[in-house]
């Protein structure tokens, strides 16, 4: 079954066609990679998938339902969660509260029960704490639960962003350069984490990445973008040996 189907997606910024005729199909449970040189339009694709940009042309289907042009909030509620290339955590909130904010639409209670501390408020807090701690444990972040998010080391911040995205219980998880700024050990650990999420959370994952070790290590299929259009698409080993792709990355 296809979790995500993108058909003829294009976006125009003034005179610049940033993404042109982009097609992509991701099956359930797949680990899919979106790669390409700097400025190829990868993050723009992410921004269209999550409703930050409205595409000029084309359609996006999540689980068969059209989500093209819907607002970000709605798209998240329908099942796409993401992380950001430049980390966007809630810096002044605790690590635990970051994940609890992610659980916002999963575990609900009314404003009145918050204000007057009705029993449902305590029930929700207990549930949230339990769920959030178990998510933090997956990434080994439980020991930092009370720290402010902005005080975490860089690599841990990236992991926290993934944990927060997972808390929204998505069908599809978008990771924008999850290994950026990580050393080889941290990257290896992250690869384990990503596999673990896919297997244990029954998740479909689409990731943008420049680190080829990570891409060839965990991605099953790839799409290569160059200057806004698809250069190659298919199984990882095939795509990476494609002479066109090698040329785009390394030059002639």
């Amino acid at each position: 079954m296809n979790v995500l189907e993108v058909k003829d997606l294009s976006i125009q910024f003034g005179g610049l066609r940033a993404v042109d005729n982009f097609n992509m199909t991701i099956k359930k449970g797949q680990l899919y990679g979106l790669i390409g040189p700097n400025g190829a339009g990868k993050t723009t694709v992410f921004n269209m998938l999550t409703g930050v940009y409205k595409p000029t042309e084309g359609h996006i289907f999540l689980d068969g339902e059209e989500i093209t042009g819907k607002p970000t909030i709605k798209i998240n509620q329908m099942g796409i969660a993401r992380t950001f290339q430049n980390i966007r955590l809630f810096g002044d909130m605790s690590v635990l509260n970051n994940v609890k904010a992610g659980l916002h639409n999963q575990i609900k209670c009314s404003l009145w029960s918050n204000l007057f501390r009705l029993p449902s408020n305590f029930k929700v807090e207990r549930e949230m704490n339990k769920k959030a701690m178990s998510l933090l444990e997956v990434f080994g972040l439980d020991k930092f639960a009370n720290h402010k998010a902005k005080n975490l080391p860089y690599g841990e911040q990236r992991k926290l962003e993934i944990a927060r995205a997972l808390a929204t219980n998505p069908k599809l998880l978008l990771l924008d350069e999850p290994a950026a700024g990580m050393n080889p050990n941290e990257t290896a650990e992250l690869m384990e984490n990503i596999r673990f999420i896919r297997d244990n959370f029954d998740m479909t994952i689409l990731l943008i990445e420049h680190d080829m070790r990570l891409v060839s290590g965990i991605c099953e299929e790839l799409t290569v973008l160059n200057f806004g259009s698809v250069l190659a698409q298919g199984e990882t080993s095939e795509v990476l040996n494609n002479p066109e792709v090698v040329k785009a990355y390394l030059g002639d």
Partner: peptide, 9 residues
């Protein structure tokens, strides 16, 4: 932006 991305109205 992050708040919107996790579905907070």
């Amino acid at each position: 932006i992050a708040a919107e991305s996790i579905g907070i109205n």
